[in-house]
Design a protein around this nucleic acid. Structure first.
Lengths: 197, 197, 197, 197
DNA sequence: TATGAATGAGACTTCATTCAT
DNA sequence: CATGAATGAAGTCTCATTCAT
């Protein structure tokens, strides 16, 4: 019973943290603002996390875990890179649609020097990229010169950057559409296939 | 009679700022640390910049100006996207080689919610992307479905992200090589050409 | 469960602020000195006031409110200016006797360009002066040429200045006495009655 | 020749100081702003004054000297308090009209704990008040109970406060007129004559 | 268990003063 | 003489963290 209450409070803390980090940046999201928005006491927060850094770090790790988990779950269902990328891009677009804060959260922190992907998650992603590369080279969807780096950049970084360039409305103020999704998939596929110079 | 502003001091302030922002992030790079590293008094910084934000903002703007300037200078010399992307990627690699801090600086701040590209620079970049798109569609190097967004993402964001994934040694600990450069160009070209789904 | 704001601390902050502003002036009374003297942490002050200015401003407003409140309370009890001025001068002398710092505080800030009486308090005082003027002209205690300005200057400014000239011991080092009080009342009455030139 | 240049520069420094202290207060009037407005270098200022405090202190002393000088010059020409007060109030009104900054300057600093009238000037003023008191008691224009304190408060402080209440437009937005001057003189005379309680 | 009052280190910024030119 | 670049102490304010209740 008490557990249920706790879980809901923890969830509110997580949501409030993500929202405020997105709105005000890591430095601007104060613990007291987070606690206030979550409807808990400041001290309560420290029952779960040792520090503000640990809190945000943990949330980022969660998000990365989800992405890796998605890829891992998709892997056995797909036999081509196209299928996999389609599913993954779909996942990112769904995230952007239903939890835009979470998408911005990833985008905000993924390049921040202070936060880095944990070794565990990094290894999972590394392994996934290796598998993708292996499949892609078999199916000739990925040019032989490319490595895990390109897989990572095109399947994770590119969709995230695309979505956030759109969020920022740098070039286009339209909301994300099915066509955009297709364009992202198409560009990824073209990219990995390589150019016939 | 009147003393002249010591240009070398200003330069040292700029270098120290870039270095520390890269190492510790915007929030972590304190004015006193910057002044100390630059070998000037804290107050001296404020002769040139109204605030810490203005200082970092101005430095970022400089970097963006350089990139836009490079592209603008290259444009008249090239008739194909391949040539242009080759030159641009070359520019980014040179920057990464000779001024790695500056490259990391761009990477660190380009996605930071607190800093945004000034309207002037944004318009320049927008216009450049439009021209690139126009040329590319003429030469059939760019798929007809793509827009300025994709140009920007693949010619600016992708090279920057590639270099920084390498800096972080996420997948590969080798230093940037000529081969890497070719791989970046090749991937860009393939990406913009589009996939024949 | 929830801790209660320690009223005594707030009181100490107020007292320390008044004392230090009096001793060192607004600029000279640093927040850290005030906090130290009040025996609280620097940051604690900011739980109650947004800024140093807001703190001092609020204290001044309080004092002005008290004076206006005194006058308002006295008004219905008196039918002559003499009675009113006697009570008011008495109030100022009591303040000077029991809370000399507070009296000096008013004196220090009342002419400071940075601080001004709030509109609310100004209107109260204006209205009070108008009433006094009305009564005084009925009872012929105030010369017909005088206006609210003279009322204000003689009933508020003069007693405050008298007390503070004494505090400064410019001409006399005696402590304030009953005779002084009578002299102030007498001078005010004479002043407002006007001279038969 | 060189002396002339210096004198004009010094004058400009003095004027700029008074103007800026009036506009921004002592703390807000920075040395560099004063130097800029005076059209001299910051360092030049320190040839004449040891510190910012010494500068402002000296200017205040000048103003007080002028007032004392005026009174001293008037004294032999007058045989009644009325004549003296008329001349003195006239002097204050002329100052307010032609050099309002200077009048505000006196007003701003006269109550400031940091600045006090120098012993020399204080003694001059004390002596003048004594003489005035003596004359007034002879001519029966000043009530026998009053002392130098009342003389000082009514002949110096009151006119200054009157003018500044008007400057602040607390009760009246009219500019100072001949009638106002008469009212001030009349009130002073009435005040010093005392009330027949 | 849960609270939030209280802390204080440390951030940014200002500006009186100095001194090499 | 005159300048103004350079200094750095000191000020205000913030906020992650603690701990008595």
């Amino acid at each position: 019973m008490a557990k249920v209450v706790d879980e809901s409070k923890l969830l509110r803390i997580k949501e409030a943290s993500i929202e405020l980090v997105v709105q005000k940046g890591y430095g601007g999201a104060s613990i007291s603002a987070i606690a206030h928005q979550a409807g808990v006491a400041v001290g309560y927060l420290y029952r779960f996390y040792d520090s503000k850094y640990a809190l945000v770090s943990d949330l980022l790790d969660d998000k990365i875990k989800n992405i890796a988990g998605q890829l891992e779950a998709m892997m056995p269902k797909c036999s081509t890179i196209l299928q996999l990328i389609t599913l993954l891009v779909n996942y990112f677009f769904e995230l952007a649609l239903h939890q835009p804060h979470h998408m911005r959260f990833i985008y905000t922190l993924i390049n921040d020097y202070r936060f880095s992907i944990s070794i565990d998650q990094h290894q999972r992603i590394h392994s996934l990229c290796r598998q993708l590369l292996h499949i892609g080279k078999e199916t000739r969807e990925i040019a032989p010169t490319y490595t895990e780096e390109e897989i990572y950049l095109m399947t994770v970084i590119y969709p995230v950057q695309f979505i956030n360039v759109r969020f920022k409305a740098l070039f286009c103020t339209q909301v994300l559409s099915e066509t955009d999704k297709e364009r992202v998939v198409s560009l990824c596929m073209g990219a990995l296939k390589g150019a016939s110079l």
